[in-house]
């Protein structure tokens, strides 16, 4: 009965709010998806954070720091949306540390040159934005509101990345080489960010029925590729896919097959930086324990000495 009313509301494009009845599967799917999204924002701070101290100009330094800071903010918006489903942030972090929750595999690749800041902004944020724009219409109210806020703030992220790529592609020979190398390394992992093919993605069915996801992995991936090809041409860089070509009939670009063995390897913990990323997060969390304890103890003392 409940389930029928619930599905009717979904079908009528009405949002589900935290206090509404929802099927267990819906709640579980949301917790998994939103927390994975939140963890991705937070773990995603590391590969770019890696270059803040080495950014080449004052302007570049401020932009990159502001961008990585936004990611922390977006992590918080998402943790906060996830908490409305009845799970605490501490539990979510614990799941991350216990490797029960995942984050986007893209962040398990190392950032080896300054051009990687360009490639990440342009491709990784670009792919994320395609996904997030679609998720603004997700059926769960708090998630949808979080996505709307995130999309509004992220519009500068992709542009800053593309600006770096454009600048380096038209710079010295060494800079152009770095830019092409970054594109070569980040292209395939970026298009794999959308996840397995629809046929191999067992949970897509429910997620679409419940309107948690509004478009499938393959639809989103195609839309990202169609947008990106021309952008690469404009700055004179070459996408490392010999099978990439315009298909007049489909009205889309055809592209080569992705290396799913590598994808699953990285998802399952065997990427170049999986252990490093998690260890970094755990260390920061553990190092901060005495600080959080002190703040908590101080708050309990009868007289709050801090000035408001």
């Amino acid at each position: 009965m409940n389930e029928t009313i619930f599905q009717k509301r979904i079908d009528a494009e009405k949002k589900i709010e935290p206090k509404d009845w929802m099927p267990d599967g819906y709640r579980k799917h949301l917790i998994r998806q939103i927390s994975q999204h939140a963890h991705s924002e937070v773990i995603g701070m590391q590969p770019e954070g890696n270059w803040i101290s080495r950014a080449p100009t004052l302007r570049a330094k401020m932009i990159l720091l502001a961008k990585v800071q936004d990611e922390a903010g977006h992590g918080l918006y998402l943790y906060s949306a996830c908490e409305t489903l009845g799970i605490s942030r501490e539990e979510l972090i614990q799941q991350l540390h216990d490797e029960k929750a995942k984050y986007s595999s893209i962040f398990n690749y190392p950032t080896l040159s300054w051009a990687d800041m360009g490639a990440i902004g342009w491709l990784v944020d670009g792919a994320a934005i395609v996904n997030q724009v679609s998720l603004q219409r997700t059926s769960y109210g708090p998630y949808s509101r979080g996505m709307i806020k995130i999309c509004k703030e992220e519009s500068f992220h992709q542009r800053q990345g593309y600006e770096i790529m454009a600048q380096m592609a038209s710079g010295t020979a060494k800079q152009k080489e770095m830019a092409q190398d970054a594109l070569n390394r980040f292209w395939w992992p970026s298009i794999m960010m959308f996840g397995p093919h629809d046929a191999d993605s067992p949970r897509t069915g429910n997620a679409i029925k419940w309107k948690i996801k509004r478009q499938t992995n393959d639809e989103l991936r195609q839309s990202f590729i169609d947008k990106t090809v021309e952008q690469a041409e404009v700055i004179g860089l070459e996408i490392p896919d010999p099978d990439l070509k315009w298909n007049e009939e489909r009205g889309h670009y055809d592209f080569g097959e992705m290396d799913w063995e590598e994808f699953w390897n990285v998802v399952n913990g065997n990427g170049p930086c999986n252990k490093q990323r998690l260890a970094h997060h755990k260390k920061a969390h553990d190092d901060g324990a005495w600080v959080r304890d002190a703040a908590k103890a101080h708050a309990k003392k009868p007289k709050i000495a801090a000035t408001n």
Binding site: L76, S80, E83, K149, A299, I304, A306
Partner: peptide
């Protein structure tokens, strides 16, 4: 939205 904090300040 919300934040986590130990005290009101």
């Amino acid at each position: 939205g919300n934040v986590h904090a130990a005290d009101k300040v």
